[in-house]
């Protein structure tokens, strides 16, 4: 649990319940800090949003707008039904909306983000008690939901140029395009991209870095995501430990699993690794608060990501590994809780 976020939501409830009381300034200040944090995240995501529109066209912008709008609408509706204070002004629904859209292919139909944000906001976030109480990252849970519900829509990626109808992501090319028996290694969700991956060529590393490659809307541009991440790190909104240990462990595990050197950089720049490491694995609510816990979280997610990518059925494993570590977070926190001085061991 993040103490800051919790305190704020509690403080806010108190503030709302005592509307007629004149309260001293700490409430207002802490109230602002949640908004401020969320606003910082939105600012940090802005370069990637602009980049996605540049690379994938107006459909990307349309999907992002639909996703954000539907997230906010669902949040308001469900809070109204549950008789909870409506907390659209904490901006968290906006971020969930952006991140859901970032996980979609650019040619996804309009209802895909709507279904995703309904699942993220209603089932994952509000059923478990709203911001601060959700046990998983809502945007990633929505991605998992969409991937198993409509695999054909979620796994067909558009190229960045308008003349390319459908292509494979670099990860899919590495997974399916290299082996002699392409079809045999194909699995359910990746099947559509697998058939396209056979024979496709990997893009240049420079294109991988700036983001001019097939993939989900918001995950392709390493450069723009890193600019946003740097902003968050400078503003001390996120802690360096999870991303650094996550990326480091993924790299080491990929080497240990025998991934050839020339593909390593593709693995590090490709898929949702950068987006996941800096913007999703750093979520306050669903990751450990203790420093050691954060390191464990990063290492665990890194091991899982590399294992899924190299040994698993899917070409991409970032979302599932973060979700699995989300679920393990209470346990990690229990074991890494710093002992209060003078506490009796039992």
């Amino acid at each position: 649990m993040d103490s800051k976020a919790m305190d704020t939501s509690k403080a806010k409830e108190v503030a709302l319940e005592n509307m007629l009381l004149v309260t001293s300034s700490p409430h207002i200040r802490s109230n602002e800090s949640v908004q401020r944090i969320m606003l910082d995240v939105i600012i940090a995501l802005a370069p990637a949003i602009i980049g996605s529109v540049y690379f994938f066209g107006l459909n990307a912008l349309k999907l992002i707008l639909i996703s954000v709008a539907s997230s906010m609408v669902f949040e308001a509706i469900i809070q109204k039904i549950f008789n909870r204070p409506i907390t659209l002004d904490d901006f968290s629904a906006i971020i969930t909306g952006i991140l859901i859209a970032f996980n979609l292919p650019a040619d996804a139909p309009w209802w895909l983000p709507v279904a995703g944000s309904a699942f993220a906001i209603i089932v994952v976030k509000q059923f478990f008690g709203g911001l601060g109480a959700n046990f998983m990252n809502p945007a990633l849970a929505a991605r998992a939901f969409l991937l198993s519900s409509w695999p054909s829509h979620m796994a067909s990626f558009t190229g960045t140029r308008p003349d390319v109808v459908a292509t494979a992501t670099p990860l899919a090319i590495m997974k399916y395009g290299m082996g002699p028996d392409t079809a045999a290694s194909a699995t359910v969700a990746a099947a559509t991209s697998a058939s396209e991956a056979a024979g496709a060529e990997l893009p240049t590393l420079w294109n991988m870095f700036i983001g001019s490659i097939p993939g989900a809307i918001g995950e392709t541009s390493t450069l723009l995501l890193l600019i946003g991440a740097a902003y968050l790190l400078i503003r001390k909104v996120i802690d360096w430990k999870i991303p650094v240990f996550y990326l480091g462990t993924t790299f080491i595990m990929l080497v240990l699993l025998g991934v050839e050197a020339e593909f390593l950089s593709y693995h590090m720049l490709g898929g949702g690794l950068i987006l996941g490491a800096f913007f999703m694995a750093t979520d306050y609510v669903t990751t450990p608060v203790t420093p050691v816990g954060r390191i464990i979280f990063g290492i665990g997610a890194g091991i899982l990501t590399a294992l899924i990518r190299v040994k698993g059925g899917y070409p991409e494993g970032v979302s599932y590994s973060i979700l699995l570590m989300n679920v393990a977070t209470p346990l990690i926190e229990k074991f890494t809780r710093p002992r209060v001085f003078g506490e009796v061991k039992n």
């Binding site: 796994a155 045999a184 194909a186 359910v188 969700a189 099947a191 559509t192 697998a194």
Partner: peptide, 21 residues
């Protein structure tokens, strides 16, 4: 294949390559 045209092509099942194959 996804859209069978030729005489030896049959309908592939979307996202179920293992079954199809």
């Amino acid at each position: 294949v996804r859209e069978p045209k030729a005489d030896n092509e049959v309908q592939a099942l979307t996202s179920a390559t293992v079954t199809t194959n």
